[in-house]
Design a protein around this nucleic acid. Structure first.
Length: 139
DNA sequence: GCCAACGTTGGC
DNA sequence: GCCAACGTTGGC
């Protein structure tokens, strides 16, 4: 299983919106960046991801799961853009803030820290475990 | 709200 | 195929 991180501005699509979709999940549409798209193409069913609130929030608030493999993004005719569907698994017991992540020497290589502009990014298994610990949340 | 960093576009 | 101009993201 691989691990990922999905960013969204909570004003546009937040954790609560994601939870409201329930088991059916929701298409992670709107990504118009090749790296982010390629990451989604590489995802497998049941891969896990962190749900991160960007711009307002700046914290990891929950865990999601890939529930549909990469398929054409329904919000565009442009065939270049694919996306997966994800569903909420559980909230973080304690949200893990960007400040907290930056302050942890074990997490200095996280893409979140290194490349703040990539909206769908890989997370290593070690990083996954550490962030779950920080959030006092079952991986 | 600003603006640095980054990605994309398009003229040459 | 280079790179200047432009647009967008997201931390601050």
């Amino acid at each position: 299983m691989a691990f990922w991180l999905f960013k969204s501005e909570p004003d546009v699509w937040g954790w609560h919106d994601q939870v409201a979709r329930g088991e059916a999940g929701e298409e992670w549409h709107g990504v118009r960046n090749y790296q982010a798209r390629n990451n989604m193409r590489a995802m497998a069913l049941a891969d896990r991801g962190f749900f991160y609130h960007s711009r307002t929030g700046l914290e990891i608030v929950g865990i999601v799961e890939v529930c549909a493999l990469s398929h054409p993004d329904s919000t565009t005719e442009d065939l270049r853009w694919d996306c997966v569907d994800i569903r909420a698994v559980r909230p973080m017991t304690k949200p893990v803030t960007l400040d907290h992540i930056k302050a942890d020497p074990r997490l200095t290589d996280m893409v979140l820290v290194r490349n703040s502009r990539l909206s769908v990014q890989p997370v290593t298994e070690a990083e996954w475990q550490i962030v779950c610990e920080l959030g006092q949340t079952e991986p």
